[in-house]
Design a binder for these strands. Structure first.
Lengths: 223, 223
DNA sequence: GTCGTGTCGAACCGAGCGGTTCGATTGGCT
DNA sequence: AGCCAATCGAACCGCTCGGTTCGACACGAC
């Protein structure tokens, strides 16, 4: 409501960029610092077992400050997942549109996808999200949409293009995209989610599974 | 160490069958009753949020009695999962060895598998197991072995037989079996685990996905 | 009938929880 | 220099947790 000149805005922005006194709960550095600590604790203890005290200690922040930045534990966790989603799932999509034959592009996509979904960090995140999905259904849905659904969407578009170009014959884009994702993580993701496999799959295994996934996929859908 | 005549054993067994005073913590009916109540509570609250008090109430049993039957919460949960594993995964395997063409048998197997893994009860059980897998790694492994690994084993055997019979050409049985399981639950299981889909898939959807799974599988591995 | 024992139920324990409060401290701002 | 607000840190709140204890009770064994 208060009137500000353009001048004022510019000055403020400049000051912020360096070292400014922030309003309570509005220092983005501190906020990030809290999230980093919280991530460590959540990831190694799970949602319920992680106490706000541990998170304070891990983040190097007083409890009072913590509650200035986040309303409560759930709020903190939602903000955390919201931040992580993007880190996790960026930088894979462009593999689909890169140069190369269909095989090469699908292979690159499958490998990126498997590598990402099977990484220790993402596995643990997925476990925690699943464990609270009953209490926080929105969180689960948003997480899924940002991850799996996003992969599926890109693939869906790719398949339609290739079908229109006559390279592939895909009667059901949704299904085919989902099949591809499943094939790419065959034998690894599920076992890792249940703790049946403790270590990340090796690069060789990822490539092997991805290659076979592409082979099977094209055996069915190649024109 | 104590000596007993055959007579004694028989008498005891007969008495037990009807209405006998059981030693503390050894009445199988009561034990089952506790597990039923515990299942209800665990399933709708998760491991951490489920309190022993709620479980007592749900089971209609006093807290003292509960702790006579089970050492602690973890012990109770392990016993519960142990009991449920068998209920969940029985009665599907024989579909593979039934009569019919390969297509028919694979289809039946895929449908049974998808139906089972996607049922509300099993989804919830899987969520809970995954949520505690960090703290109780054995439990996760045993659950996986009783479920997914069991499916895979049967399929593995089937594929070898068919390959030896010349019907299929499968270079890597492990991989192919895993691929089949993934294909059978395409688009349903993962989304349900993350709460992205609230309702069990319909029989029609299960059959559709299963059919496409078999089609793709045979497109790759049929001799 | 009376004894023995498995169950009940409620009180109880110490610990830890999420969340709040408040005085002391610090370091940018004017 | 002196103000002021963001942060600190420790104590504190009410509550619930997993787990224990114990006297009352009910019922099968003899």
């Amino acid at each position: 409501m208060a009137h500000m000149t353009m001048q004022d805005h510019t000055e403020k922005a400049e000051a912020c960029a360096l070292k400014r006194r922030h309003a309570a709960g509005e220092d983005p550095e501190k906020r990030h610092q809290i999230l980093v600590g919280a991530w460590r604790v959540f990831v190694e203890q799970g949602f319920d077992a992680a106490s706000m005290n541990s998170i304070c200690k891990a983040a190097g922040v007083s409890k009072g400050t913590l509650y200035v930045y986040f309303e409560n534990k759930e709020d903190l966790f939602v903000a955390l997942v919201e931040e992580k989603r993007q880190d996790f799932f960026d930088g894979i999509f462009e593999r689909l549109v890169g140069a190369g034959s269909i095989e090469e592009r699908l292979l690159a996509y499958a490998m990126g996808l498997s590598e990402q979904l099977n990484s220790e960090e993402v596995i643990r995140a997925q476990r925690i999200v699943i464990s609270v999905v009953e209490r926080m259904p929105d969180l689960g849905r948003r997480f899924y949409d940002a991850g799996a659904a996003h992969f599926l969407g890109r693939l869906h578009g790719f398949l339609r293009e290739e079908t229109e170009a006559g390279t592939l014959v895909v009667p059901d884009f949704e299904l085919a995209a989902a099949q591809f994702v499943e094939l790419a993580t065959t034998g690894t993701w599920r076992a890792r989610m249940f703790g049946r496999r403790e270590d990340e799959p090796t690069a060789e295994e990822i490539e092997y599974v991805a290659r076979e996934a592409v082979a099977m996929f094209l055996a069915k859908y190649r024109a």
